[in-house]
């Protein structure tokens, strides 16, 4: 089975892709890790773009630290993607356990990793939107931290940034769909339990993501 077929199955036929995949003791985590790393790289690039914009607002006194600050942003985004993978898997594992799920954590980790694939596309698309949105911004140095915060809030609440968030959430929903099918197989739970297992964290995630835009 070629990689492209696997990818197509993950995205379009997750039920078929996960069917019988976790019959062995130890699932192969190379592919999920690769997907998560790819997601981390895309997130890091997007973070680099946003960080450079943010640094433009900083006072001239710390302008020389731009490279360092961007590096911290990129590193944080990359590590954040890996942590997101582990944390979301742990949440899924915990909730599914409450719903009678069985099977070790590596299976959940594999499902979560495979399911991150649509988020890679979502990050690329939202990153492009953010890039074009920020390219129109004229950045001015701001010395007052309150004004920096206000300026960032202004930028982040702009329609283009909202669009980027919406696009990202749409692809999270696509990932959630994959996670539902994967958790059924990985934890031997019903479709309903899998929907609850995945639905609760995803809804919370959506609310957390969209509350700033709403509020």
């Amino acid at each position: 089975m070629s990689i492209m077929t696997n990818i197509a199955d993950i995205l379009l036929r997750p039920a078929a892709f996960f069917n019988g995949r976790f019959e062995g003791d130890k699932p192969d985590l190379k592919m999920p890790l690769l997907i998560v790393l790819l997601y981390g790289i895309v997130a890091a690039l997007s973070a680099a773009n946003v960080s450079s914009v943010t640094m433009g607002m900083m006072p001239t006194e710390i302008a020389g630290m731009e490279s360092l600050m961007i590096g911290i942003g990129v590193f944080s985004a990359f590590i954040g993607a890996l942590l997101f993978w582990v944390i979301i898997a742990a949440i899924f594992h915990g909730i599914s356990a409450l719903r009678g799920g069985k099977g070790d954590f590596q299976r959940t980790l594999a499902v979560t990793g495979y399911g991150t694939l649509p988020m890679v596309f979502g990050s690329i698309l939202s990153g492009i939107i953010i890039y074009f949105a920020l390219s129109d911004v004229t950045i001015r140095p701001v010395s007052d931290p309150m004004q920096i915060s206000a300026a960032l809030t202004e930028i982040m609440s702009s329609p283009s940034m909202t669009i980027a968030g919406v696009v990202s959430l749409i692809f999270v929903l696509w990932s959630a769909n994959i996670w539902v099918f994967g958790m059924q197989e990985a934890r031997s739970i019903s479709g309903k339990d899998a929907l609850i297992t995945v639905g609760i964290p995803v809804v919370i995630y959506c609310l957390i993501t969209f509350l700033p835009y709403i509020g």
């Binding site: 911004v137 001015r140 202004e154 702009s158 329609p159």
Partner: peptide, 10 residues
């Protein structure tokens, strides 16, 4: 123009 992060929704 700095909030040109898009006052208008493209």
């Amino acid at each position: 123009s700095s909030s040109g992060a898009g006052d208008e929704l493209p």
